[in-house]
Write a protein that binds this DNA or RNA. Structure first.
Lengths: 184, 184
DNA sequence: CTAGAATCGGGATGGTCATCCCGCTTGTTC
DNA sequence: GAACAAGCGGGATGACCATCCCGATTCTAG
């Protein structure tokens, strides 16, 4: 933040361009795209990428964490405004839509530990919100009591994997199912 | 089959041992385990593995296809005996349980194309049965009409990913959800 | 415009893996 | 039990990547 001033103008430009290209590439082609390829498309050398982001993970964190923070704020906003059940399903749906439109995020959300570990706390914060809202929704009887957080994560990931295909059917199935047959 | 006689006795033994070890290893640790490691655990050289199975994919096919054939027969059996809706959910559940107890199979089922492409037809046959039963169940009004085969695959994969954890909750969610709220 | 530091590019390095190859060993046959 | 083919082991090869490094370049201060 404060040392952004310390970067030479061209360096700052390159850094921004790498971030932009990487976000685009990860979103459309997933996380397995080589760093080399990102550098190529950004029109810089691989050295430039790895100086700004020593590790691929660092690059990923730089891209995702602001996004996760935003989603976390959104989650808090929803939690404040809505009843527990409504809030949980609203967050679930929002996360699914976010992941469905971003291949990289969906991959991240797919393997449990990966998302939670991202950034200093960004990933863990967001996951915590989902977990809290789940608990609250179950408390309120709006979500079946027997499902666990990891069940929800697995179902979320399944929905995300449908990508740009119509999400309504699978979201419908999962949300109905989570509500349980009894509360109608 | 017929050329099994043509193998020298020790070669046949080695081949069997490799198959056995690979099945175990893939099941418990997933498909990313190096061939090298399978050879090591089987107590043979890597050359021995790749002579019997020139490609890792060949090894995988040898392990899985008999299993897939058995599941396909089971599917036919179920389809013959049960009403469409019952049959579909029974197959779905059976596949989930199978995948949940075998990390490798779950991985295979996770990426759409991978399972269908396995073996000469083994994978495609099984997938075809699932697809047919889905259609029949939808025809009979036992499964929501708006879900597609790929939605079912995604949900199946999500259930499998819960591994040895209790499957009832997530299976309950998915099956209830697939039935839809209307048909009671 | 010039010196000097910050950056750059992309080749070098090191690690992981599947697959191939070949000199050596072992089973099989007569 | 000898000869020979079948099979063995594991090192060699080649692909693919992330990450590191350093001589060459470009920015910026003065």
């Amino acid at each position: 933040m404060t040392d952004e001033r310390a970067l030479r103008a061209d360096a700052r430009r390159n850094r921004a361009r790498v971030l932009e290209v990487a976000a685009e590439v990860f979103a459309t082609e997933g996380l397995s795209v080589p760093v080399h390829e990102i550098a190529r498309r950004a029109g810089v050398g691989t050295g430039t990428v790895s100086r700004h982001f020593p590790t691929k993970e660092d690059l990923l964190t730089a891209i995702m964490s602001s996004r996760l923070v935003k989603l976390t704020e959104e989650a808090d906003e929803i939690a404040r405004r809505e009843a527990p059940g409504t809030a949980f399903f609203a967050l679930f749906t929002a996360l699914v839509r976010e992941g469905a439109s971003d291949c990289g995020l969906a991959e991240l959300a797919g393997t449990d530990r990966r998302l939670d570990a991202l950034g200093e706390r960004a990933g863990a914060d967001l996951c915590g919100r989902l977990q809290s809202l789940l608990a609250a929704a179950q408390q309120a009887g709006d979500v079946r009591a027997d499902v666990g957080y990891l069940d929800v994560r697995a179902l979320m990931s399944a929905c995300m994997s449908r990508r740009e295909d119509p999400l309504e059917p699978i979201l419908g199935v999962v949300i109905d199912g989570l509500r349980g047959g009894t509360s109608g």
